[in-house]
């Protein structure tokens, strides 16, 4: 490990840029969250301390949104991680016919999210959608994909998975591609099975990349908005009403203080989630090997 003042010159440009651009808006928003500020009553802006947070803590709708968001996040990330890892391993095999297919696998990432979700709404349509047409031909009925409370959560998970399994795939695939090939050759010379090579070479060397993929997805699913807004708008009832949907409503109604408080709580929850994940996987040092 090199130690020296040279490190500073590598780090400073990026860090100064990032913290200047992001911290100023964040602090501003944190400040607003201590105010009672409704856009419809512009003269009645007053400092209320933690009152906005206290109201959220005792609000059953907000608690429910936290539960929904947590369910959606854990389900979607788990599915996406397993599928992405499976695909990365599948495509890391040395078959020439896999090369040209890699780009096809990435295509969902390139669809503008709002358009992708709108198209899925057409596909999911209970009466005239293509999915239910074939399901009913097969005698499986016409499930109300977006209007049944449980199914609606499953449906937004399906769309999120369709969109972002390619992300999981690409990150882990690139990680596998940089692993030293000598190790695998040595291991198979020594008679290690495919499972053992995976368990004792790939997993330890890929831990950091896998963890990063999960972290990034977890924080993005937790704050997912476009897909849910287009597909269900938070409904039916409150079945898919995540924290972000509530936040959007609060902004829409012009409750600036409360909306910013919801944003701050989201940031705190996401930070906690990532911190726990990092600690759990990497141990106390929290650093890559």
């Amino acid at each position: 490990m090199a130690v020296g003042s040279a490190g500073r010159w590598f780090l400073l440009p990026g860090l100064v840029f990032l913290f200047t651009i992001d911290l100023i808006p964040l602090l501003y928003s944190a400040w607003i969250s201590f105010y009672n500020w409704w856009l419809l009553r512009p003269r009645d802006v007053r400092f209320v301390g933690l009152a906005n947070y206290a109201r959220l803590a005792s609000d059953a709708e907000f608690t429910r949104a936290v539960v929904v968001t947590t369910l959606f996040t854990s389900g979607a990330v788990l599915v996406e991680f397993l599928a992405g890892l499976g695909l990365a391993l599948l495509f890391a095999q040395p078959f020439r016919f896999l090369r040209p297919l890699r780009v096809l696998l990435l295509l969902p990432l390139f669809v503008v999210p709002v358009v992708g979700a709108t198209m899925w709404r057409v596909i999911f349509h209970p009466e005239i959608g293509v999915l239910n047409y074939y399901l009913s031909v097969l005698g499986l009925g016409r499930p109300p994909w977006l209007s049944d409370p449980t199914l609606a959560l499953v449906s937004i998970t399906i769309v999120d998975a369709w969109r972002t399994i390619p992300f999981m795939f690409l990150v882990m695939y690139a990680g596998i591609e940089t692993l030293p090939g000598e190790l695998y050759e040595a291991a198979s010379v020594d008679g290690a099975s495919a499972w053992h090579r995976f368990r004792y070479i790939t997993v330890p060397l890929l831990t950091y990349i896998m963890l990063l993929a999960v972290l990034i997805r977890a924080m993005d699913v937790f704050r997912e908005f476009d897909i849910i807004f287009v597909l269900t708008g938070g409904g039916p009832g409150t079945a898919t009403q995540t924290i972000q949907i509530l936040n959007y409503r609060a902004f829409g109604l012009g409750h600036m203080g409360e909306a910013n408080a919801i944003g701050m709580v989201t940031l705190i929850l996401v930070t906690l989630m990532c911190w726990i994940l990092l600690r759990a996987v990497l141990g106390r040092r929290g650093a890559p090997a």
């Binding site: 130690v3 490190g7 808006p25 704050r223 930070t271 990532c274």
Partner: peptide, 24 residues
């Protein structure tokens, strides 16, 4: 390069990505 607080700073970099855009 390791320096004091390098792990904390690195986590803070990630925190910058966690803020909801709606709020920013």
């Amino acid at each position: 390069f390791r320096f004091r607080l390098s792990e904390a700073v690195r986590f803070l970099v990630l925190v910058m990505r966690m803020a909801p855009r709606m709020v920013l």
